[in-house]
Each structure stands twice: as C-alpha cells, then as structure tokens.
C-alpha cells in the first residue's frame, strides 16, 4: 500500500482536518495503478487524487508514463492492477463525466470531416445511439468553436488546419462534452503562441467554473505561470500538491534525475522564492 495520502485530501482538509471527505467529492482518484508494455513496467503502483476545481500539471521526464497514466486510468489501455474512481464511482460509470483530449497524433487528420464535425463528436454521447445531430447541437458546437477562436474555420477540412488550430478544435470538442473532469494529453505540444494563449484562457475558464483539469505538460518553464497544482511522475509517483510547495528542486531532481542540468533546476526553483 501507499504510505502517503493523496494530496487532494490534504487540500480539502486544510480548514477542517477532522471531517472526512466523502469519495463522492473526489473528482478523479487512482489507486495502485501498474501498467506494463510487453512485460516492461511503465507505471508502478501509482496512487493519486486530483484536487477538485484545480488546474493540475502532470509533469515528468520522457517515458515517465504521463500519457500512459491518463489512458490507463480511463481504461483505454490494459493495466496490470489499479482502479480509478470518478466522484466515488467506478470508471465505467464515471466516464460520462470526463472529457479526454488525446495527443494530436492520435487521429488521422486526413479523415473526411470538418472542424465542426469533430466538435459535434463531443456531443455524440449526449445525442445517444442511432440519432443524428440536430440544429441545436450544431449551434452548441459552433459556440464551442467560438470560445477557442475557431468559428471562422468551422467548415474547413481538419487536415487543412495548422497544428495549433487542430489542437484548438480538439479543445472545442472537449468543451462540447461539458464534462466535470478534463484530462488533456499535451495540448501545448507544437502549437503557436496564439494557440497557447487561447488554450490557457480556456483552461482557466474551466477551472473558474469549478471543473477539475489535469494536463500532461512538458515545458517546465511555464508550470508556475499556468498551474496551481502538479503531479510529478517518473514511472512512480514522485510528489503531488500545490505548485509553491511541490514544484521544488528536490522533487524535480527526484523525478528527472540527471536529466535536468543543475543550472536549470536552480532557475526553476529560484522562481519559487518569489
């Protein structure tokens, strides 16, 4: 078993440490998750609970299992052990309350679909089996495109969008899902500055609405600016908690080992003093 309680619990207990939190208040909890690809372990007994209504970065070196963590938690890839609970419910029941944004490379952008087609897919769960999207659904999809600044590209075939625009379409699709928990796999990978700004705005908006957002993030320089919490992984759970107390050079050293130069570490941790 894990010897430390997940940080989400700490946070919620800050004011009243005696009252226990009902599992129904924990948006996303993973217990003892182990995943292996071809007998090679990628994640070892990771336990974690996401703080509700917070914007959390999942960081760690390449191959730390960050994307694997999200996919396995959602049951999208097989795992050796572990379970996920969404507001206390098992994952099968909780999937409806989650929106997952995969890496851009996960889909075929030559597919005969327009931007609004892709956003509409986020509404398919709501629409249900056999039924076709109505005009109301199209309007909702268009509103979601608008909120990421992509309304002018609604009828553009998705392969003819830039990488950043494609990422924004993915984000709009996630918005259309109107979920309570958002799990995003590297939304900032290879996007232009305008898109990065648009994504950050939307993420903050989501959190302001009380939703819980977890983002696999690569760029350590921006962690402090964008997020309130982090989860550090390197195949195992290294640390999690608020940025001020957890994004420290010791923790980063633990997660990245020799892969971060000491000067880099210094730079990142200096900012923590501010």
């Amino acid at each position: 078993m894990h010897d430390r309680s997940p940080s989400g619990l700490h946070l919620l207990h800050d004011t009243d440490a005696t009252k226990s939190v009902s599992p129904a208040d924990l948006p996303f909890t993973v217990q003892g998750m182990t995943v292996a690809y071809h007998h090679k372990p990628v994640l070892w007994g990771v336990s974690y609970s996401a703080p509700k209504g917070c914007l959390t970065a999942i960081i760690g070196p390449n191959g730390a299992g960050k994307s694997t963590f999200l996919k396995a938690a959602l049951g999208l890839i097989p795992k050796l052990s572990g379970e996920t609970r969404i507001f206390g419910d098992p994952i099968e029941k909780g999937l409806k309350r989650i929106a997952y944004v995969p890496q851009r490379s996960a889909v075929d952008w030559d597919f005969p679909a327009t931007a609004i087609d892709v956003v509409l897919m986020g509404l398919y769960g709501q629409i249900g089996w056999f039924r076709w999207p109505s005009r109301k659904h199209r309007q909702t999809a268009l509103d979601c495109l608008k909120s990421v600044g992509m309304q002018d590209f609604a009828n553009r075939q998705i392969g003819q969008l830039s990488g950043g625009q494609q990422q924004r379409v993915f984000l709009a699709r996630a918005l259309a899902q109107n979920a309570e928990v958002y799990l995003m796999d590297e939304p900032f990978a290879g996007v232009d500055a305008a898109t990065e700004k648009a994504i950050v705005t939307v993420l903050r908006q989501l959190v302001a609405e009380g939703r819980t957002v977890l983002v696999v993030h690569h760029d350590l320089e921006t962690v402090r600016d964008y997020y309130s919490h982090i989860l550090l992984l390197n195949g195992q759970h290294v640390a999690d908690g608020p940025v001020e107390t957890t994004f420290t050079s010791e923790n980063l050293q633990k997660a990245y080992g020799g892969r971060l130069a000491s000067t880099q570490l210094d730079g990142l941790s200096q900012a923590s003093g501010a």
Binding site: L95, Y100, A106, F111, M121, Y124
Partner: peptide
C-alpha cells in the same frame, strides 16, 4: 464515424 476517426473518444463516450 466517431469509432473510425477517434476510437478512444468513441470508447469513452460509450
């Protein structure tokens, strides 16, 4: 359409 384009999303939407 959705299961051909994005099997993961398709699965997560049921």
């Amino acid at each position: 359409k959705i299961s051909s384009f994005d099997p993961l999303l398709s699965a997560s939407l049921g």
